[in-house]
Each structure stands twice: as structure tokens, then as C-alpha cells.
Design a protein around this nucleic acid. Structure first.
Lengths: 201, 201
DNA sequence: AAACAATACGAACGGTCGTATTATTAGTTT
DNA sequence: AAACTAATAATACGACCGTTCGTATTGTTT
């Protein structure tokens, strides 16, 4: 049991602290580099105590993905959804994504770019969880674009435009972490602007 | 000494065999997942004998990157450079890149997409080698685009167009390995076609 | 034939990995 | 206060990690 009368008990606080550190580590060193012993010693708790919260390494990895997804949703999706549906929201989504990467919400850049490449060519539950998140994310962009199309503010194939926009995001993220430079974000912004302009009515 | 009268000696053959296997493993499991013991046992040689060829894990990783770069150059750059400079070569480069990813020249998809994300947020010689390859590659696209611009076949900022094209490549590669689907390549081709059309004179 | 490198080998090192078992602490309930 | 339960810790395990060592084998050079 994790809650009693809505009050958090000890165990859940630990779990949260573990996962908050886990997503940061994994964004730099990957879900494989995220080791239980290291995680425990960084948090000043015992390896066995930490392990007991998850029962297996894979379960820790899956929990880390879920935790990262929540942080991602808060940083990228929520701010964009405060803007009215339509072209404005498409722009807001692009802007909040680039800021999410640039501000290093995760210290290693985009968590999902990192671990999706790590587990892209492997089987297992982790791969499937990441593939599902990717589909979900692409669907969210596509829906956001479609709303703009339906409002007559854009003229484009929503899936195609979603692909293009996401490509700019990811590419800027990688160039930024590789070279520690912000110039890729400028290029991404320019690409987005030009692409949206060419799809303008 | 690795060569005598142009003839390969034993040691160099082993080195080549090791690196050929190493790039394949690393494209799936990363340069960290590339372990010396595993590599040796897959090749049926001793761990210590393999190790002696490189002297350290990091040196093996760097040699693996150089080997992958050669394969990449053969698969992507060489075919494109058989086409006359200009718009045709830009198209050929895009096509050979997508085929390089689609045909799984490396079993885990693009080797550099994989390991650049792996080492993007870490320091060290491996990171620097990958950053250098990235710069070299972006420069190559940019030069190819610039030749088309100078010939009056395109009207665009070469660096910007290079960024856009590379973004389509990488994004298709990731979507493909995550979902085992080829549809992302169709979207990438469409994105490239549209982008080049919009930059056409 | 003798000397010399180059290449490969098996065994072992200290460490860290994920995991299992067992014990201890702390909080809640009776 | 006693009993019970959830959370954390201690300890140990076999497997694998990168690395080092001494040694055998091979091929070339004198």
C-alpha cells in the first residue's frame, strides 16, 4: 500500500526520489548505464533497499520511462496546450520542445531521443514501451497539426508535417548535445518557420 | 608493423575481423555494450589476445568508430559522388543515405545515430571523435548543396538545407528501428522532395 | 641455426553488475 | 505496551567487466 488517508508513506517518497535521480542519470548514461548500485550510493541508501522497490532492473527501467514521460508531458505538452488549438498551438508546441531540450530539463538532452536510440534495435519490454511513447508523441503532433488544418490555418498532410517538425526537433537536440552549441536551435526554428509558412493558407 | 611487401600479416587480419564484428555489435548494443569478452567469444579467439590489439577499451572504441566511418563512406558517400555535382548529387546523397539505413548496412540502423546519442552527453575521446564525424558529415552535405546552388539549380542557404535534409534522414532511421516499419522512409523521401522543390529555381 | 619480434593464449586480478536471502528498523494498529 | 507490517539494510552469490601477467607459438631477420 502506498497511500494511507491520502498521506504518502515513507516508501513512496523514496520511490519518487529514486526515479527523479534515475531519469537524470539515464538521460546521460542510458537505461543500461543506470545501475542500481550507483543509484543507491548517489542517494545514500542501500542497494538492496532500493532494489526492493522495483524487484528487477527491467522494472526500474520501465518505471524510469514512465517518470520521464510525466516530466516530458509537463515540460512540453502542458504549456502548449494552454494555447488555443490551431496554428498557434503548433508553434507553441515547437517552441516548448526546443526549450525543453535547450534548457536541459534532462541533463543529457531529450531523454527519449537518448534511450530510444539505446533500445531501438533490441527486443523486450523496454523497447516496446519506448515505441509506444514514440507513437503517442507523433500522434500528438499530428493531432495538433490537424486541428490547425481543420481551422483552415494550415494546408498540409498532418502526418507528413508532424514527421517534418519532429525531425527538426530531434536533429537540433543531437547537434546541441554533441557540440554544446545553441546554433542548431536557431536552424531548427528557421526550419520550422519556413515549413509552416510553406503550409500556410 | 602491419604490412610486409604489401602482404597482410596475421595480426592485421585479426584486427579487421574484430572491427568488422565490432561495428555490428556497437550498432545494436552501443560502444559500451561492446564488451571485449563477448567480442572475443563470438570470434572464437581469446579475450587477452584481442585486447592486445588495442591496449584499452577506449582504443577499441575509437578504432571501431574509424572502421564504421569507412563503411559509411563506402555505402553513402561514394555512390553519391559518382553523380555529377549539383542537384542530382544532392538527390543521390539523400537516396543513398536512406538506403544505407533501410538496408541495415549496420544491423542496428545508422551506426552514428546510435553511438552519437550514446556518447553525446559524456566527455572523453569517444565523444570528441563522434562530434568530429558529425561536423565532417554536415559539412559534406553542405558542400554538396552549395555546388547545386553555385550551378543555379537550387536557391537556398546551404547550411540550412543541410540541416533540414539531415534531420529527415535521422528521423526516418529512428522511426524505422523503433517500429520495424518502412513507412518513415516514405515520409522522409516526401519531405526531401518537397524541400528540394521549394528550393528549386 | 640463432635471435628476435609479433601474435595469441590461459589464468588470474580487483571491481561492479543484478539478484536472493536474511535481518533490522520504524510506523501503525490493536 | 504488544503485535503486526511495511520499509530499509546487511550480507552474500555467481557472472561478467577491463586489465595484467607470464608463456607458448609462430614467422621473419640475421
Amino acid at each position: 500500500m502506498e497511500k494511507v488517508d491520502g498521506r504518502l508513506v515513507r516508501g513512496d517518497q523514496t520511490r519518487r526520489a529514486v526515479l527523479r535521480r534515475a531519469v537524470d542519470i539515464a538521460s546521460v548514461d542510458g537505461l543500461e548505464g543506470l545501475s542500481i548500485g550507483r543509484l543507491a550510493s548517489e542517494l545514500g541508501i542501500s542497494k538492496s533497499g532500493l532494489f526492493a522497490h522495483f524487484g528487477s532492473k527491467e522494472e526500474l527501467q520501465l518505471a524510469t520511462i514512465r517518470a520521464a514521460r510525466r516530466i516530458y508531458a509537463d515540460a512540453v505538452v502542458t504549456p502548449a496546450f494552454e494555447v488555443e488549438p490551431g496554428l498557434g498551438r503548433v508553434r507553441a508546441l515547437s517552441e516548448s520542445w526546443l526549450e525543453y531540450s535547450r534548457q536541459r530539463v534532462f541533463p543529457g538532452g531529450c531523454f527519449f531521443a537518448k534511450v530510444s536510440h539505446e533500445y531501438g534495435a533490441r527486443g523486450g519490454a523496454v523497447h516496446e514501451a519506448l515505441a509506444a511513447v514514440h507513437l503517442e508523441w507523433m500522434g500528438l503532433i499530428e493531432t495538433t497539426v490537424r486541428e490547425a488544418v481543420e481551422r483552415g490555418e494550415l494546408e498540409a498532410d498532418p502526418a507528413q508535417l508532424a514527421f517534418d517538425l519532429n525531425a527538426y526537433y530531434e536533429s537540433a537536440n543531437l547537434a546541441s548535445i554533441l557540440h554544446g552549441s545553441e546554433s542548431a536551435y536557431v536552424q531548427a526554428r528557421q526550419a520550422i518557420r519556413a515549413r509552416l509558412e510553406s503550409a500556410g493558407v
